[in-house]
């Protein structure tokens, strides 16, 4: 009986947290629009690099020039929702201030409630920071817009999993604060790995030799490169989604272990 009641309440709780994350970020409209502006400016600058490269090497990596430009603006649109430069969780501040103990003794799981809130945030930023770079790219250079609903469905599924992968990674980074005196090092390391190995700077397909193979197997590829390939229709749908889901599960499982470890450290040992 009691377990039945709990189940009934759990789903609405997380749904409410998703809404809360969405609303919370909706109060920072100007900050989000400023982010969209900056992402768009950088999108234009990156697009020119890719255009110059694809003009000398048409068909490189199976993309044509329009695909390459599209790649650029789609990936810029991911920066906000996936927080590719790090942060967005608020957990490090709570660990430092000790408030994390309050979160850990709540009945809801810290990991799942953070995920729910983060999904709400991602949904909001997808709308506000995702569309402006794409629209600007379309207006300035022309980009690929899929007409096949199947491809849209594949892309949206891939994008959703990518947000979860990005959350899984950022959650681990956030928890690491608990064991470190100075967490800036980890933040920078995460920034480097995420921006370089996700395909945010240039498509992973043009990395030379073993570097390319390595990058394609790492979790960051599941964040930017793969959903963009789904958008462009350049990747086999099921395998791609399976690869992304694999990394999502691995990172979430590590996150669950990490949560147990900090609960042990904070609640049982008392900090």
């Amino acid at each position: 009986m009691s377990s039945h009641i709990r189940r009934c309440k759990t789903i609405p709780l997380y749904a409410r947290l998703v809404r809360y994350g969405f609303r919370k970020h909706a109060t920072y409209v100007w900050a989000a629009l400023a982010g969209a502006f900056t992402n768009s400016v950088f999108g234009v600058l990156r697009a020119y690099i890719l255009i110059a490269l694809w003009q000398t090497r048409p068909g490189l990596a199976g993309y044509d020039v329009t695909d390459a430009v599209t790649y650029c603006f789609v990936t810029q649109a991911f920066i906000g929702p996936m927080q590719l430069f790090g942060g967005g969780l608020g957990i490090p501040e709570r660990i430092r201030s000790g408030d994390i103990a309050l979160d850990l003794i709540r009945p809801a799981s810290l990991q799942l409630s953070s995920l729910a809130e983060d999904l709400g945030r991602a949904a909001y930023l997808f709308l506000v920071r995702g569309f402006p770079p794409m629209l600007l790219g379309a207006a300035m250079f022309g980009i690929v817009v899929p007409t096949d609903p199947g491809r849209w469905a594949a892309f949206l599924a891939g994008f959703a999993i990518a947000v979860v992968v990005s959350f899984g990674w950022r959650y681990l980074v956030a928890l690491s604060v608990c064991w470190l005196v100075d967490d800036r090092g980890v933040a920078v390391l995460s920034l480097v790995l995420t921006t370089f190995f996700s395909g945010l700077m240039v498509p992973l397909h043009i990395f030379p030799g073993w570097l390319g193979d390595l990058a394609a197997a790492l979790p960051w590829a599941a964040m930017v490169q793969l959903p963009t390939d789904l958008y462009l229709g350049k990747a086999p749908v099921l395998e791609t989604l399976a690869f992304q889901a694999f990394w999502a599960v691995v990172l979430l499982a590590l996150g669950a272990l990490g949560t147990r470890a900090i609960r042990h450290k904070v609640v049982i040992q008392g900090g």
Partner: peptide, 20 residues
Amino acid sequence: FGVIIAALDVAVILVVFANT
């Protein structure tokens, strides 16, 4: 780490010129 971040931009240039 500051050096590593800055080196990323060089890495991108090198990746581009690995292809052309």
